[in-house]
Amino acid sequence: MEQSLQPSAPDSRRAFIEKVSSAVFAGLALNGVKLGAEEKTNTMPASGLPPMPASPFQLSEHVDQDVLIRMQAELERTMKKPFKERRWGMVIDTRKCTGCSSCTVGCVMENKLPPGVVYRPVINEERGTYPDVARTFTPRPCMHCEDPGCTPVCPVEATYKRADGIVVIDYDVCIGCRYCLTACPYQARTFDFGEHWTDNAAKGADGALALTEARAYQNPPNFEYGKHWERSEGLIPGSPVGNARKCTFCTHRLDQGMLPMCVSTCVGRATFFGDLNDPKSLVSELAGQANAKVLKPEAGTQPQVFYLS
C-alpha cells in the first residue's frame, strides 16, 4: 500500500541523518572525545526534539494484501448487514488509471450491452498543445448520486434510488420517454435502440457466420438486477429494448458476493468499491482523503463516486 509506506519515510530519514551527522562530528572535530559523548548523540537527537511518535496511519494489516482481496472480504462483511445500512460507493484513482478500457469492456460483457448502450465509458482527454501534452483518463460509471437528478423526473417512478444507495431502473415499468437521459448531469444513461452487434456483420461475406455463430452469443439473456432479460424487437419490444439503461453497480453480482465487474477487471487496481457506511472499508478511507473529489460538484447531486487525482 502506497499510503502505508509514506509515513515511515520521515522516520528513516531522520535516523539516517542522525547517524551520518554523528559520524561526521566524531570524525572531524571531536577526535579525542570519549565514547560516552558519541552514545549521547545517538540517544538524544541533534535538534533536541523528543522521539517521533508511532505513525498515525495504521494500515499495516493490509500492506501485503491485494486490494481486491480486502474489498472482497469487506463486501462479504457488508452483505451480512441489513439492506438499509449499506451505502455502496466507488473511488477511482485517476493517477493509476492507464486508460485501457478493460472496465468498459468487462461491463459490456457482464451486462451483454448492445451497441449504443454503455455504462462506463472512459473519457480520454489530451491537455496542452503538441509536443507539450498530457493525457488524463476519467472512467465514468453512474455516480449513484445521493440527490439524483434523473429519478424525480420519471413519470412512472420506474427509476429510483434504493435504500442501499444504488440508483436502479425497473425495465418492466420504464415507458422509454428518455426524460431521465436529459436530466442526468453526467449523461450516465443510454437508450436501448434495439441494435445488435451482428447487425452490419450479417450483410457482408461473413453474413452467414455472423447469423449462426455470433447470434448464439447475443441471444442468451443478461442477468441485470438478478433477473433474466431476453431482448427482442417488434411491436412490443422485449425489455430492456426501448428502455433507459444505466450502470447498476452490478447488483446481481453483489447479491452473489462478487465485486462489480469493472472493479474486478481493472488492471491498474484503480477502481475501489465498498460500503461508505463502514468507516473501516477501503472506499471510506479513500473517499475521506483530501484529494478525493467528485465530478461536477456544482450539479448539486452529491455523487457517490469519488475521484483521486
Partner: peptide, 23 residues
Amino acid sequence: PGLVTPELKGLENAYVDPIGNHL
C-alpha cells in the same frame, strides 16, 4: 440545442456506436 453539447468534456469520443451511431 439544449442537448448538443457533452455534459462532460470528452464524452463524445469516449465510446462510439458503430452500428447505429446512437452515441
